[in-house]
Design a protein around this nucleic acid. Structure first.
Lengths: 117, 117
DNA sequence: CAGATATATAACTTGACGGTTATATAATCA
DNA sequence: TGATTATATAACCGTCAAGTTATATATCTG
């Protein structure tokens, strides 16, 4: 079994989850979107499966991967104990959060620039 | 710079944060509590520092480590997009969460059983 | 100053991770 | 049936993480 923390540590897997949040996807679709080889994607999907963060529905040779957000509750629960501390000082943090979001967005752009050959 | 995801992936570091949530602690205190060598703890603290999750106050030879929860906001933000999905199906998940908590508690017990030699 | 105390850093080992290419498996299609 | 399509698995490689022991650094104490 793989913990939700282990599943989320890799940015590619977070991207996959974000993509699956929009809609179920085929493996090949994810390959097209993520600039990683097909076996690489399959390996990530295996990790997500073993963390129970996705479920699969087979349809002929194709596999539809679908989000299963339940395990995120554990993370949310852990975070909960910190949330009061956070909201206490909330004013100080607005700035911080905006910075982080900018950084993340930047990185996602980088990911996307798959050389189109 | 170390991401909050990287910082949280290690269970020992999550325990350290939990301990610092209660109160600031000395390195030696954490060593006593965690069954890892002093350099091991110092390395974890360095990671937490580079993730901006702790701050240090020096007092003679001692170092007080204190929680800095701000970076957790980024994680909370990421989780936010999934929270609606989660609450939608909330009834199905109670059971799941309880299981996870039991597992975690079990593991923490294991951590604590430092052979007292 | 010499020793003791508290912590950090260096160097090393081991194992796991994330990527790759090559291949196996399984279903569809002609 | 043989070729094609879609995905998973195997084998391998380089990097890094987490632990260790040994040592450096810095402060206090006698």
């Amino acid at each position: 079994m793989i913990t939700v923390y282990e599943a989320l540590v890799d940015p590619t897997r977070r991207r996959i989850l974000d993509l699956l949040r929009e809609q179920p996807r085929l493996v090949g679709e994810l390959v097209g979107l993520l600039a990683i080889s097909q076996p690489g994607i399959s390996k990530h999907l295996r990790v997500l499966r073993e963390a129970s963060l996705v479920k699969v529905r087979q349809e002929a040779q194709r596999r539809w991967y679908e989000l299963r957000p339940e395990p995120l509750l554990e993370l949310d629960d852990w975070l909960g104990s910190y949330r009061e501390l956070l909201t206490e000082r909330f004013d100080r943090l607005d700035n911080y959060l905006e910075q982080s979001q900018a950084k993340e967005k930047e990185q996602q752009e980088d990911d996307k620039v798959k050389s189109d050959d």
